[in-house]
């Protein structure tokens, strides 16, 4: 088990290297460089930069040098913890995304636990009571969940909350806590606000995971070990929870590998609609403003979250399924 985890951890630097190259190429992708577009932007707003400042910026980022040198400079600064400065905000990128990254992770994890807490019972009930009222009810519910775009759900709920209850449900904090440092009151305030984005973001995933679990469980429920467990005298619920659910949950756990990153990055539109202080809206703004250092840093942090999500799912799988542990150990 330890060997398995260490092996997974050893691949990480390599993965991050590949991802950093991709992120850097994204920064380089637009025509011209960002200093040019920044100067153009300044010119458009009526101000200007003198040639010495422009050259200083160019030299700082190594723009007069070949691409691989530029990448090397960027990655060196990155490794030293310097993400660079957002040209748009004129602030260090680390300051800009630090707080938002934390909130993104908190919201992502909350959504994730919500999804599983709802999807597991729905999947189990749908499979064990196949073709019952519950099964059909949740089937319809799941199709609606999968088919409705999450931003749409967000808009509808916002509208309902505003017209029916007269409250505004955007953001993750009340105005008085929005720009405050962390405190107990702020955490409580976050708890009061996080449930709605959590439910909205989780509906789609809940529906998908419940469908997957139902299908897997239906396969498992006819396996001979079920008959054996019954023949032992085990009660129906205990045996369902101990054997088939345990086996049907494996594919679900391996779906974490893509589901966690999806929660982190897929919340972009919903976060924009709900005006959440996560990194999604910031990415949108940096892309519109061609603030490519910021965009690159955000894309890289998405990659980082994806890698961590996959790592968690790999470790969980090995912990759950001895067959995977053994296979890895024997290699």
């Amino acid at each position: 088990m330890l060997y398995y985890i260490v092996k997974r951890l050893l691949i990480l630097p390599f993965l991050l290297f590949v991802f950093s190259v991709i992120a850097f190429l994204l920064i380089q992708a637009p025509p011209g460089d960002f200093v040019t577009s920044y100067v153009a932007e300044l010119a458009a707003s009526g101000s200007s930069m003198d040639q010495i400042q422009i050259e200083a910026l160019r030299q700082l980022y190594g723009l007069d040098q070949p691409v691989y040198v530029q990448y090397f400079k960027w990655i060196t600064r990155l490794l030293q913890g310097d993400l660079g400065i957002s040209l748009d905000f004129q602030k260090p990128i680390a300051d800009l995304i630090g707080q938002r990254l934390l909130l993104t992770v908190i919201l992502g994890l909350a959504t994730f636990f919500f999804t599983f807490a709802i999807a597991l019972p729905i999947g189990i009930i749908s499979a064990t009571r196949q073709y019952s009222f519950f099964d059909y009810f949740f089937t319809v519910f799941n199709y609606i969940g999968v088919a409705t775009p999450t931003f749409m759900t967000a808009l509808i709920l916002m509208w309902l909350a505003f017209t029916e209850l007269g409250i505004t449900i955007t953001g993750l904090f009340s105005p008085e806590y929005a720009d405050q440092p962390w405190s107990f009151g702020r955490v409580v305030d976050l708890g009061k606000h996080i449930w709605l984005p959590m439910v909205i973001l989780g509906l789609d995933g809940t529906a998908r995971l419940a469908r997957i679990l139902r299908a897997n469980l239906l396969d498992e429920l006819n396996k001979p070990y079920m008959e054996m467990a019954r023949a032992k005298g085990l009660s129906e619920w205990r045996l369902v929870l101990k054997y088939p659910v345990r086996l049907a949950i494996n594919p679900l756990v391996s779906s974490l590998g893509w589901y966690l990153p999806l929660i982190f990055s897929g919340s972009l539109i919903v976060a924009t609609v709900l005006n959440l202080p996560t990194i999604g809206p910031l990415l949108l703004r940096s892309l519109i403003g061609q603030d490519m250092f910021l965009a690159g840093a955000i894309v890289l942090s998405y990659f980082g979250l994806a890698v961590i999500g996959t790592l968690i799912s790999d470790i969980l799988l090995a912990w759950l399924d001895p067959r995977i542990r053994m296979e890895e150990a024997s290699k």
Partner: peptide, 29 residues
């Protein structure tokens, strides 16, 4: 068949040796 009385007999006074032991045992326990 699912009641307590039958379950107390099943696996206790009447037991089963299944056809395929591989499939009858859980692979993750």
């Amino acid at each position: 068949g699912r009641g307590k009385e039958m379950r107390a007999i099943r696996g206790n006074q009447i037991t089963l040796i299944p056809q395929e032991p591989m499939a009858a045992l859980s692979p993750v326990h």
